[in-house]
């Protein structure tokens, strides 16, 4: 049983645009997968379907045993608790400290403060931000903010970490650091990682499975792939 199973999946938006067409693929537990493609290639729609920000129009998307197409709106939180999401724009709450931003996810699930604290410290330690727990997001650099976002995503120890262009706003050096953190999460925690990116250098260096999507269609799925998409990507 694969961790993620996608069969004949279509995503058509109400305005008639087909973002994903007849996509079939599967991802095993513990895999590290890059999703690459142009802007507008359908890569984002694909990523969004994994955490059910979008629903497939046709076909099935199963993530960790949960059928996304059949998941009711009020039950979406059950899926989201099983996975962590890292965004290009971090999505941190500016009024909360680093600690509070990470604790936020656990508080909402009703955990005791005494249970929350060690988990948050552990997650922040893993991303190397233990010293900055009292800082506010605007006092941090871009790379540090992204690490807070990663800490928040892994605080629940999810089986799957979805990264939507996590290095898109960062310089090459910082990107490298972030990739180190993500790679260590994959190796040490056994977390499945799905990462959408534009960064040719990262993809080529990491030598992981690469799935290329163009115009909503899967064009290549390479186990130790390189960035082979169009030159202008």
């Amino acid at each position: 049983m694969k961790f993620i199973e996608i069969k004949n999946c279509y995503k058509v938006y109400p305005n008639g645009v087909t973002a994903i067409a007849d996509l079939t693929l599967s991802i095993s537990k513990g895999d590290f997968v890059f999703i690459i493609g142009h802007s507008g290639s359908g890569k984002s729609s694909f990523i969004k379907m994994l955490y059910r920000e979008e629903k497939p129009t046709k076909g099935s998307v199963i993530v960790g045993g949960i059928n996304i197409s059949k998941l009711k709106n009020r039950n979406v939180y059950k899926l989201r608790r099983k996975l962590g999401i890292v965004f290009q724009d971090f999505k941190l709450l500016p009024k909360l400290t680093v600690y509070e931003n990470v604790a936020f996810a656990l508080e909402a699930q009703g955990l005791k403060s005494s249970e929350i604290k060690p988990k948050v410290i552990k997650a922040l330690d893993r991303v190397g931000l233990k010293e900055k727990i009292r800082s506010f997001p605007n006092q941090l650099s871009g790379g540090e903010q992204q690490r807070v976002c990663i800490a928040r995503a892994i605080v629940n120890e999810p089986k799957l970490l979805i990264c939507d262009e996590p290095t898109g706003n960062l310089d090459p050096e910082t990107s490298k650091e972030i990739m180190k953190v993500i790679d260590s999460i994959n190796k040490e925690m056994g977390t499945t990682i799905i990462m959408a990116t534009h960064d040719k250098e990262i993809v080529n260096r990491m030598k992981k499975r690469v799935i290329t999507i163009e115009n909503g269609v899967l064009v290549s799925d390479d186990a130790k792939g390189r960035y082979v998409a169009h030159e202008n990507a």
Partner: peptide
Amino acid sequence: RNEIEIMRLVGTSNTVI
């Protein structure tokens, strides 16, 4: 709305939001 969006993303149930 950002706060609500993030709450949803980190797995807060609608009732709790």
